[in-house]
Write a protein that binds this DNA or RNA. Structure first.
Length: 419
RNA sequence: GUGGGUGUAGCUCAGUUGGUUAGAGUGCCUGGUUGUGGCCCAGGAGGUCGCCGGUUCAAAUCCGGUCACUCACCCCA
């Protein structure tokens, strides 16, 4: 009978790797706490309509990547492909803006997109999302990006590049869009198949097409920064100004656009050369129209998502390893020793000390080998008849020196280990 | 959805122009040695060679199909 395997693009994160995830999450939570960002936990399943309206009907995500199904109650549901729409839905549903229009929220969890898997891309992947709602001051944008850079640097990442652009707003982007369509109309035959299709749905995407001919064609086109309205220009200039004040290095990428429809004004991306083709570790931007679009009040917002899996893959293998705390292995010789070891081992664990032992009755050699494998700091050997008190030497594994103090009971041992 | 690469032991991989009981390293188990583990020595378990079909006296090896993994396009974090 054939074995059952995991679903394509859905992977197990094995015990060797989970400490990395835990350490990163701990550090991030601490930083978010200091920046006044509170956690929100949202469902994995939402009504399909939420993403259609939020992300945009014509986007690749909605068009062909969502896990959508009809449930037994005949309702169209979707496993979330991203978190922002859900956070906004919750913000509106619970009238959070009534209590306090300003909300700084984060959420961590899995997202689902049915793409072809490759390096740094899975069908179930994990994101750390941050949303700042209720404020459109350019300082918010700068503060958000500065925190992000700080956070990634704190985690030990190097070679990061922050790129940003402005996408304009509802009033200036449509005009720019028309201009681009007009510009490309008579050059259509020089565009790739995808871009010709995009011309009708999302012509701005031609800007970041990787096809050479497309790049050449679009290079003469007006760029959005020359075209956006004075308000948007002002906002963008202030954002970059504040970034400079905060000493955050950045570069402007006039051709960067976003694949989700809700973005307005500030859009940014952080990339790393260490990631392969899927080089974006973070992406985000402002979405001043989204709250209203989803049925809430007119309320600005900005946010980002960190690709958790990609972030983890950039960290060294030993990241998050516990090295300091004591880790005891109890080896036994003989039946009666096992009995005493059993209760001592249990007492150690309840006293907050990591401890383990072997019940299989294997040779001492095998037990010691196991202790070594578990990377134990100390091995305690308990003999069958030696030492009336019942406990033999506590031995340090690392330098081989013996500590031959006989210990009378578990309490004395705990004290010894803790001193 | 499109293209390239790869599927042989738990893991990393050899396997010459098709030819007998398919190998190594590592890991695992047992024993020896060792001032009770690391080093060394001996032995052992473990594989329908991804799956199906074809060619052949004979297929891990050649051909076709299929599935999986992987990298890239696309898209995005």
């Amino acid at each position: 009978m054939a074995n059952i395997t995991s679903v394509r693009g859905f992977r197990d994160i094995l015990p060797e790797e989970t400490p990395k995830w835990q350490r990163v999450e701990e550090k991030i939570r601490k930083i978010f706490f200091n920046f006044g960002i509170k956690e929100i936990r949202i469902p994995i399943l939402e009504k399909t309509e939420l993403f259609k309206r939020g992300i945009g009907e014509a986007t690749d995500i909605v068009e062909k990547e969502m896990y959508t199904f009809v449930d037994r109650g005949n309702e169209q549901l979707t496993m979330r492909p991203e978190a922002t729409a859900s956070v906004i839905r919750s913000y509106i549903e619970h009238h959070m803006y009534e209590k306090d229009p300003v909300a700084k929220l984060f959420t961590i969890g899995p997202m689902f997109r049915r793409e072809r898997p490759q390096k740094g891309r899975f069908r179930q992947f994990h994101q750390i999302n941050v949303e700042f709602l209720g404020q459109d001051d350019p300082r918010i944008d700068a503060d958000l990006m500065s925190m992000l850079i700080y956070l990634l640097t704190e985690l030990g990442l190097e070679g990061l590049k922050l790129e940003l652009n402005s996408l304009g707003c509802d009033t200036c982007r449509p005009a720019f869009r028309e201009k681009v369509i007009l510009f490309l109309k008579d050059k259509e035959n020089r565009l790739c198949e995808d871009c010709r299709r995009r011309l009708g749905s999302n012509p701005l995407r031609v800007f970041d097409c990787k096809n050479e001919s497309c790049q050449e064609t679009i290079s003469g086109a007006p760029t959005i920064l020359d075209f956006i309205c004075p308000e948007c220009t002002g906002h963008f200039e202030k954002v970059t100004g504040h970034l400079e004040i905060l000493n955050v290095p950045y570069s402007i990428n006039k051709r960067m656009v976003r694949g989700l429809d809700y973005y307005t004004r500030t859009a940014f991306e952080i990339t790393s050369g260490a990631l392969g083709a899927q080089n974006a570790v973070t992406g985000g931007g402002r979405y001043d129209g989204l709250v209203q679009m989803l049925g809430g009040p007119a309320m600005p917002g900005i946010g980002f998502a960190i690709g958790f899996d990609r972030l983890i893959s950039m960290l060294p293998d030993n990241y998050g390893e516990d090295t300091g705390s004591p880790n005891i292995f109890i080896a036994t010789m003989g039946e009666s020793a096992q009995g005493r070891a059993f209760s001592i081992c249990n007492a150690l664990k309840r006293a907050g000390i990591r401890a383990d032992m072997d019940f299989s009755g294997k040779s001492l050699k095998a037990q010691m080998k196991r202790a070594n494998k578990l990377n134990c700091s100390h091995t305690l050997i308990i003999g069958d008849t030696e030492l009336e008190e019942g406990i033999a030497p506590l031995r340090n594994m690392r330098d081989g020196t013996q500590d031959s103090v006989a210990i009378k009971n578990a309490d004395a041992l705990i004290e010894k280990i803790n001193n």
